[in-house]
Write a protein that binds this DNA or RNA. Structure first.
Lengths: 202, 202
DNA sequence: CCATTTTTGGACCAGCAAGTCCAGACCTTT
DNA sequence: AAAGGTCTGGACTTGCTGGTCCAAAAATGG
């Protein structure tokens, strides 16, 4: 025996409680005592499940949140094979972040990039996966001739990632999704073939 | 007399020292003792010039850094009246952030958005000014017929801000400017009138 | 039902960091 | 030169926070 069902449940409870608290307070503003109180646990449990202490806990939370980011877009993100799918995806992204408002888990996560060593890697992995999904979508659409063939899929996908990231970033400090919507509109428009280009605005 | 020349100099020295230290360490990782040591000052001075303590100091640093962000783009950003100017501006932005690498003052600043109350407002002001410069450039270029007239200047400028913000954000965790360059390329391309559209890549 | 292992609770410790306080140096004005 | 303000230094306090430790409870397995 190495870990019981109960143990795993407790561990998960700690991660989720810490995640919830981390979303509202910044990473610097979260203390182990907060987590302890919020999850009805004791110091002993915290260090039992995360021997590395606070750093290990925060990293676990980071991974947990990173997974959720992609999962939340997942019905659409994995199958960007039609314009309708792209638009549904865009709407899902906007809706998700609008709902989240100022409390951005990824944002808080990025805030740790400087402090926690492993955080940068988690973020990097997330962004890479995210970008690959978009790239695959572009390639698929190019295959069926619905996206301009002269675009570099990787580079264009990178632009999407940057755009979304920035839109969310701005959202964090303004509370509005205007920037996110604007940049996504430009990016999507950029994918469309030149001919049908004229009346681009939707 | 309310504040002497010497006093103002000391205050400035504190701000700049704190700013330098904040750029490498995260906002959570900076202590007043660090600042004190780095600027050859004493606790007395710190609280003499920033009665509000750490929070007030960090806010002053935030304002200082925010000013620098725009200043650093300033020869170009204020006069986006030709394609050459736009490209020089883009190059300046990329060069600036490439040089800065992972140590992003604005990024560290955004990290405080959650913790320090006033930080969100500072960031918001910065982004608003920044966006206005871009919008003015778009309007000017539309006036001379060199940018598609069907674009909404504000919305498009918002897309620029989001894109740059995201590119920098990604830079913080990857160290590469690929995303920033990619999104700027897409955005600039989007400004160009439809006719001259075909061979967009540069 | 006993032995072993995991899980849990919470007292305790050490160090650190923000903030206070006051005395003395320095300036500047009359 | 005297007085009143500003500037500077640094000792000290206070509270918190991450982390340690150990003993008791609960589960597990034979």
């Amino acid at each position: 025996m190495a870990i019981t069902v109960k143990g795993r449940a407790t561990r998960q409870r700690i991660i989720e409680g810490a995640a919830a608290h981390l979303r509202s307070a910044g990473p610097g503003g979260v203390t182990l005592d907060d987590v302890r109180a919020l999850t009805n646990t004791s110091k002993g449990q915290l260090f039992h499940y995360f021997p590395g202490g606070k750093e290990e806990l925060l990293l676990a939370v980071a991974r947990y949140e990173a997974d959720r980011v992609l999962d939340d877009q997942q019905p659409h993100l994995g199958a960007l094979t039609s314009w309708a799918a792209w638009e549904r995806w865009r709407d899902a992204v906007i809706a998700r972040y609008r709902a989240q408002g100022t409390n951005c888990p990824l944002g808080a996560l990025m805030g740790q990039v400087g402090s926690t060593p492993g955080a940068a890697e988690v973020v990097h992995t997330l962004l890479t996966q995210w970008q690959r999904y978009v790239r695959d979508g572009i390639v698929a659409m190019q295959g069926s001739g619905r996206i301009r063939p002269d675009l570099d899929p990787d580079r264009t996908a990178a632009a999407f990632i940057a755009g979304i990231q920035g839109g969310v970033q701005v959202l964090r400090s303004t509370g509005r999704t205007d920037h996110l919507e604007a940049v996504l509109a430009v990016l999507l428009d950029h994918l469309r073939p030149a001919p049908a280009h004229a009346g681009a605005a939707h």
